[in-house]
Design a protein around this nucleic acid. Sequence first.
DNA 1: TAATAATCTACTAAAACTATAGGATTAACC
DNA 2: GGTTAATCCTATAGTTTTAGTAGATTATTA
Lengths: 136, 136
Amino acid sequence: MLSKKTKYGLKALTFLASQTDRSPVQIAEIAKEKNISQKFLESILLTLRRNGFLGSKKGKGGGYYLIKEPATIQMTAVMRVLEGPIAMVPCVSLNFYEKCADCPEEGECSVNKLMLKVRDANLEVYRNTTLEDLIT
Amino acid sequence: MLSKKTKYGLKALTFLASQTDRSPVQIAEIAKEKNISQKFLESILLTLRRNGFLGSKKGKGGGYYLIKEPATIQMTAVMRVLEGPIAMVPCVSLNFYEKCADCPEEGECSVNKLMLKVRDANLEVYRNTTLEDLIT
DNA sequence: TAATAATCTACTAAAACTATAGGATTAACC
DNA sequence: GGTTAATCCTATAGTTTTAGTAGATTATTA
């Protein structure tokens, strides 16, 4: 299942991307527009800012805004920040590789074999989809 | 993340599929061979039996055995039983469709758009992979 | 009838998820 | 410089899911 964090994060990103300009949009406005709990959204936008997707401005007239072109934002990056590793098991992860403790030989593991295919299929989708592609 | 339930279930299935014949294999043997908690595996094998993948025999000389040819068991079926819906959100699920409560129009939802692609990519993999393909 | 192995129900501990609370900090405006 | 408006940040709480355990029951075989 996709976490609500990722779901809300994606909605917020596309909302910001679809704005006519890049002037700050308040959390409250995004939350209202996209039916998201404001406090929860707050923490999500914070991590998106900390990971280089958004900029922010405090005080009156402040808010969040995109700091890259939507066409340059790949879903691989978004998903890794919001949802975590794209691989479903650490032993096939590109960025978060870990050997399975219970698995003597990776090459002979059926789970490894299947999840490798799944990872590649998902990577293909995420790499070839940018934020711009998600705007209607 | 892939649940341990699915991971263990897949390992058990491939272990049973790789046996020379289809005579019953005890839970204890599978658990030992694949480094799985026996009691946990017990409940997993039970759901696999209830969903038509395995047969079982009680008493001395009993155990679990495959009741279909490995080549006829698609990963779509296995994943749905062990891991649940293949889609990451209900609004793009083929078998478990549900409308999003918070989403006014599916056609304009960025999450829907992305997850539809992801679902298709995963279905492609799961449909074209059978239990036989996972045996080394 | 004794031994064996699956079946079934119920329970528990830990982790992850989904928030919420409340104050601290910063910027704009009068 | 004070007020207001907004993000920033930490802590915490409730719920759900996951992973595993315990123990009694039922069926089979020898």
